[in-house]
């Protein structure tokens, strides 16, 4: 009898106690997005060091490789960026999987959403679709980039990165990726603030308006920064071809 009662109890509890997973997954989706977003902004700022010259970029590269821990403070541990790439790749996959739960589940749902967009022409609704599309793009292009970084982390540097852009023809990928990342990221960060109400304060409506402006400014800023950096690398890449220096590693102070 007792065991039956126990069994009944667990059956009842199964029915009554709701899974905690939806809460965890929702939080995980937001946190992974936040992590990726912050990473990408930092990443672009680091990458844009090229705008201050090859030495600046090299210095940053070395810092990121923790070269200050090496005896001569010249080279570094390229395992660090490689592992970072692997880590980010992991987070990226997690985020993608979590976010995909929200994608239109079939063609009909997709069509409904498109018709909703057409009917409403509502910026936040459209923004979400932008995120779906850019997320989709990133899933492929971002994976390629991350794979390269994880496997060839030693080839990061003012010259070698530039060669990758130009000589190895990766610039169109980075161009598309840049737009995808910055749009997805800025919208995502804005949405996070809205979703969790973190900055709501006394007048959530005014906050949202300000956040929208901020979102646009941030997008424009990072796109400009990204385009300029991309242009700088491409320029170096072209010069490398002209000067027959493709594949050469840059040495600090070489052009200083």
């Amino acid at each position: 009898m007792a065991s039956t009662a126990e069994g009944m109890k667990s059956l009842l509890e199964d029915r009554v106690v709701k899974s905690k997973w939806p809460a965890r997954l929702d939080l995980a989706q937001s946190l992974s997005g936040l992590g990726l977003g912050l990473f990408m902004w930092t990443h672009l700022i680091l990458v844009s060091s090229i705008l201050f010259g090859k030495d600046a970029m090299l210095a940053i590269t070395h810092v990121m490789e923790a070269s200050f821990l090496t005896p001569d403070e010249a080279g570094g541990y390229t395992l660090i960026p490689a592992l970072t790439a692997v880590g980010v790749f992991g987070l990226f996959i997690v985020h993608a999987c979590l976010a995909m739960r929200k994608f239109p589940s079939d063609w009909k749902a997709h069509k409904t959403f498109r018709s909703q967009m057409a009917m409403m022409n509502h910026s936040d609704t459209n923004g979400w679709y932008t995120q779906v599309v850019t997320g989709f793009i990133m899933f492929f292009l971002g994976s390629v980039h991350l794979y390269i970084m994880a496997t060839q982390a030693d080839k990061i540097g003012p010259q070698l990165s530039a060669d990758r852009m130009w000589t190895y023809g990766m610039w169109p990928l980075y161009l598309i990726l840049l737009f995808a990342v910055e749009m997805h990221g800025a919208i995502g960060m804005y949405r996070l603030a809205i979703k969790w109400g973190v900055f709501d304060g006394k007048d959530p409506r005014a906050t949202r308006k300000r956040l929208k402006v901020l979102k646009t400014l941030v997008t424009v800023f990072f796109l400009s920064l990204g385009l300029a950096s991309l242009a700088a690398y491409v320029k170096i890449g072209i010069e490398n071809v002209e000067n027959n220096r493709v594949g050469e590693r840059y040495v600090a102070g070489q052009e200083g």
Binding site: K18, S19, K20, P22, A23, L25, D26, R101, K102, H122, D124, T125, W128, R191, I194, K195, R208
Partner: peptide, 13 residues
């Protein structure tokens, strides 16, 4: 507490 509830909201506003 599930995706038909508050966790389903995608903050489309």
């Amino acid at each position: 507490g599930d995706d038909d509830g508050v966790f389903g909201c995608m903050s489309l506003m």
